[in-house]
């Protein structure tokens, strides 16, 4: 629990420095006390498994596998939506499908849901953690089957996120 507080302190202090650019000693002093206050009160809630931050391979995967794929999918999603909106016939075929995931941790599920929401044509409606099920609104339903939908929507990000957050 102590590690969680220290990590939150560092993050809060960095955000304070960003908000008060350029730093001088008065701002830094006030920010130091505020960051201590914030991390003292809410530090226990921030990170439960601090040991995963020690592994440098996780940062490597995050920076060089997750972020490029995420940005590329994000750009593709925009062109997809733009195409559907501009097209006179409005080519949509929407529905809510069920997909399975094997991620268990809070951070992993949050990142998976956020990535799916910013991917082309999908939006997460609800998460059921006990059964490992995500309900996804799909603007162009290609398959109502759980397994096939899982393969199309979830698999790519799940593989990467499993290496980062599990």
């Amino acid at each position: 629990m102590k590690k969680s507080k220290i990590i939150l302190f560092i993050l809060a202090f960095i955000i304070w420095i960003f908000l008060n650019w350029k730093p001088d000693w008065q701002h830094l002093l006030v920010g130091f006390f505020i960051a201590v206050f914030v991390s003292y009160i809410t530090g226990d809630l921030f990170i439960y498994r601090a040991y995963i931050l020690k592994n440098p391979l996780r940062y490597w995967y995050f920076a060089f596998y997750y972020i490029p794929i995420f940005l590329w999918e994000c750009v593709k999603a925009n062109f997809d939506v733009a195409y559907r909106v501009i097209h006179p016939a409005l080519p949509i075929n929407p529905g809510i499908v069920k997909v399975k995931t094997s991620l268990k941790t809070d951070t992993g599920l949050t990142f998976l849901a956020n990535s799916i929401t910013l991917m082309p044509g999908t939006l997460v409606v609800d998460v059921n953690r006990e059964e490992g099920v995500l309900y996804v609104h799909w603007i162009d339903v290609k398959s109502k089957d759980v397994e096939a939908a899982t393969k199309i929507i979830v698999e790519r990000f799940e593989k990467i996120l499993k290496k980062i957050f599990e």
């Binding site: 075929n93 929407p94 529905g95 809510i96 499908v97 069920k98 609800d126 339903v141 109502k144």
Partner: peptide
């Protein structure tokens, strides 16, 4: 959901 929707598993 819109009436043209295919399915609603939720």
């Amino acid at each position: 959901l819109w009436e043209g929707s295919v399915c609603d598993a939720y």
